[in-house]
Design a protein around this nucleic acid. Structure first.
Length: 722
RNA sequence: GCCACUUUAGCUCAGCGGUAGAGCGAUGCUUUCGUAAAGCAUAGGUCCAGGGUUCAAAUCCCUGAAGUGGCUCCA
């Protein structure tokens, strides 16, 4: 008879195989009442499941002993909530077909195929929620029953449920003798109530004991999804919801969500007038307003200072380049879907249209690659990188330009414009280079996903021996930047080759060396990092910095990539000590990623309350009344003379009103000046984040203190009286 | 690109077939004030664009644009 071992090592003997509930009962009635499920040898099972062997058993309750919510229990509860929602939806829309409904960290969803003439709309939410409440109030038991694969499939076929049949077939295939993992010879269904009489769903489980255990449940939003994530497959409606054991937790979750959205860079950006996106200018194109431009310029100065320390040289290149350039680099036409359309010379278009050239033909002649170029590339790489139908005689090709999707081709040409000796390697070319990419319209998001953006880009042309040191240099730069800005919630991802794919260029030896260099460099950072095979660029391994924002989304910012391919494509060389030409290796790196995305993430990081050195308005002087306006202007003049960004609020509001306005604008320092201050040549200080007068200090003292804080780019507000 | 929703004053939003509204902001006047909103007044609108239904459309219908949440994508 089974012996049950509890987490504390205690054992319980049973005369007959017990259910999870029996085990809980034996420990105590209170636990039995709270129990939601059991973990049998680490595997989640229903509370009603029979344990027919010796096992380690852990009773799962909603709250752990320390009072915190058990994540396993929350997922379980949400999975059950998904069933409740699905039943409610099928009651509201009878012909809705269920597909797949898993729990998530923030809730759950159910993918559902609605009849074409009856899509779900947000106006249905109230009805669905009313149904869900009813199901919860009825406190019906989740009842599991199993049947053989053939019976199960017959049953699903009878119901005409195409998607569930697919799920069942996948479950059967996954448990076939040849498949890995535990074998199951049956299909399981869960009824909310008595099988055959109540609503039911094909489901592996487990579930909470009854619907009443799901205390608070809410339909959140609608989205579309594709069956199996394949965009050519059926289009489904994904209904999102969330659930908690209590209404109070749900309310707290909704409140947090609201607070996070108040921190959204689009909201703060509009309120503080940091940037503007104008429909007439175009989607995904950022207009930097004066205030936002100050932040960007300060960041650029900051990184510029660091680059000078590291021996970079700055370059400037134009926003477009000839198609020929991008055919050489390989950007065009292979990535044309993520680029703006080529800019064709007017003469060429007119000439072609006069000849009656069709659009298709025109595209062909724009995208084609000259026979000469194709031959050259094949010769060097030994690989066929250009398909035959692209290769056309020069006379048929149409010349044109393209908005640059990357800065590297221009930088390669700068490197190539002068001879290089091994003595002047590495050559480090840096540029705040603006690039343009055609992002799908549904992907655009404020400043974080745009169609035109400025990378803090640089390309390091180095010898192979120099790679490790150069990668180290890049990483220390990223680290300096993140430290100064106090960004601590980030992770490092080392993207390596997928060992089974052969899409990569370069030799195995070079890849091994480059990957080792990336790995060693990442180790030296002292930050947790993950190695992700298959995440490398096709030309080399990379190190990415992924920062988490307040809403929990992750953004890839900085990146360092090792590239063996570009020097070959552009036939770059330097003269080595042996007086022979050698191939340089190129390191691409952008520690901010893009100024747009970085500023967007920074706005959320600081919730608009920037450190003084970044604040568009660093100080505002608030005269108590008109009587001290003149003194206020003199104070501002003294600050301005020291390079401090300062304004005077000389309106006829009371000082309370002026303070309110300044706090809303998140200005670091407020100087309140009245007759008392004017007489003694002092200012009364109010510091952002504190809710009272910080006291008075001499004007000179304030000027010197804030000058120091700005020059050192301090993350905190450090100026105080005394 | 796909699905759902949204678009009304500078901002946040109400109005949902019958004369275009509020709060904040802006401007002006009064007040001359010591640490999170003084009082009064004034200005401000192609109700996203185009078409349709109707005696009458911000409101109902169609098409398009832009935004939001997801899906797919991101060299």
């Amino acid at each position: 008879m089974p012996t049950i071992t509890l987490p504390d090592g205690k054992t319980l003997p049973f005369d007959a195989p017990p259910t999870g509930l029996d085990v809980a009962m034996k420990i105590g009635p209170r636990l039995a009442k709270d129990a939601l499920a059991v973990k049998v040898d680490g595997e989640m099972r229903d509370l009603a499941a029979v344990i027919d062997r010796d096992a380690k058993v852990d009773i799962i309750t909603y709250k752990k002993r320390d009072g915190s919510v058990n994540d396993d229990a929350l997922l379980l509860l949400r999975h059950s909530a998904a069933h409740i929602m699905a039943e409610a939806i099928q009651r509201v829309v009878p012909n809705a077909q269920l597909v797949y409904g898993p729990p998530l960290a923030t809730g759950f969803y159910y993918d559902i195929k609605f009849p074409d003439d009856r899509p779900l709309s947000t106006t249905d939410f109230a009805n669905i929620e009313a149904e869900m409440k009813r199901i919860v109030a009825e406190d019906r038991k989740f009842t599991r029953y199993e049947c053989s694969p053939s019976d199960g499939l017959n049953k699903l076929s009878a119901e005409g449920s195409k998607y569930k049949i697919d799920n069942a077939q996948r479950a059967i295939a996954a448990s076939s003798p040849s498949a890995p993992g535990p074998q199951t010879s049956t299909l399981s269904f869960y009824a909310t109530g008595a099988p055959g009489q109540a609503w039911e769903d094909l489901c592996r489980g487990p579930h909470v004991p009854s619907t009443g255990r799901v205390g608070a449940i809410k339909v959140m939003s609608l989205a579309s999804s594709f069956w199996h994530g394949d965009e050519n497959s059926d289009r489904l409606t994904r209904v999102y919801g969330t659930a908690f054991a209590t209404q109070a937790e749900l309310d707290e979750f909704l409140k947090q969500k609201e607070e996070a959205s108040a921190r959204d860079h689009r909201v703060i950006g509009a309120k503080l007038r940091l940037f503007h996106i104008d429909e007439t200018v175009g989607q995904g194109l950022i207009l930097w307003t004066p205030a936002g431009s100050i932040i960007r310029k300060e960041l650029q100065n900051f990184i510029g200072d660091e680059l000078r320390k590291q021996g970079y040289t700055e370059v400037f290149t134009p926003h477009i380049g000839r198609l020929e350039l991008y055919k050489t680099s390989g950007h065009f036409p292979y990535y044309k879907d993520s680029q703006f359309a080529p800019i064709i010379e007017r003469d060429a278009i007119e000439q072609l249209s006069a000849q009656g050239c069709s659009c298709a033909e025109m595209f062909n002649r724009v995208e084609g690659v000259s026979a000469k170029l194709a031959q050259g590339i094949n010769e060097r790489t030994g690989k066929e990188t250009i398909t035959k139908d692209r290769v056309r005689p020069d006379s048929e090709l149409i010349a044109g330009f393209m908005l640059k999707p990357m800065n590297c081709p221009h930088h390669a040409k700068i490197f190539d414009s002068a001879p290089h000796s091994y003595r002047d390697m590495p050559v480090r070319l840096a540029e705040f280079g603006t690039v343009y990419r055609w992002e799908q319209s549904g992907e655009l998001n404020g400043m974080t996903r745009v169609r035109g953006f400025t990378q803090d880009d640089a390309h390091l042309f180095c010898t192979e021996d120099q790679i490790p040191a150069e990668i180290q240099g890049c990483l220390s730069l990223v680290k300096v930047i993140f430290n100064v800005l106090g960004m601590k919630d980030y992770r490092v991802r080392v993207g390596l080759r997928d060992p089974s794919a052969d899409k990569y260029t370069g030799t195995k030896e070079n890849w091994d060396k480059a990957e080792a260099a990336c790995r060693d460099a990442a180790k030296s950072l002292g930050v947790p990092f993950s190695e992700e095979p298959g995440e490398a660029a096709f030309y080399g391994p990379k190190i990415d910095f992924v920062v988490k924002d307040v809403i929990g989304r992750e953004w890839q910012l900085g990146t360092v990539q090792v590239d063996y391919n570009m020097a070959i494509r552009f036939d770059l060389s330097y003269i080595g000590p042996d007086n022979k030409p050698h191939r340089p290796v190129v390191i691409h790196r952008a520690p901010f990623g893009s100024m747009e995305r970085f500023c967007g993430v920074l706005i959320e990081h600081f919730a608009g309350a920037f450190p003084t050195w970044l604040s568009p308005e660093q100080v505002r002087v608030l005269p108590i009344s008109e009587k001290t306006n003149d003194y206020a202007l003199r104070v501002a003049e003294a600050l301005r003379a020291s390079g401090v960004r300062v304004t005077v609020d000389d309106g006829n509001d009371r000082v309370q009103g002026k303070i309110k306005a300044a706090i809303d604008f998140k200005i670091p320092y407020l100087l309140i000046v009245g007759p008392r201050d004017a007489e003694q040549g002092q200012v009364s200080l109010r510091i952002r984040g504190t809710d009272k007068d910080a006291g008075a200090m001499a004007l000179d003292g304030f000027v010197n203190a804030i000058k120091g804080e700005i020059a050192e780019r301090k993350a905190e507000l450090t100026v105080k009286p005394g």
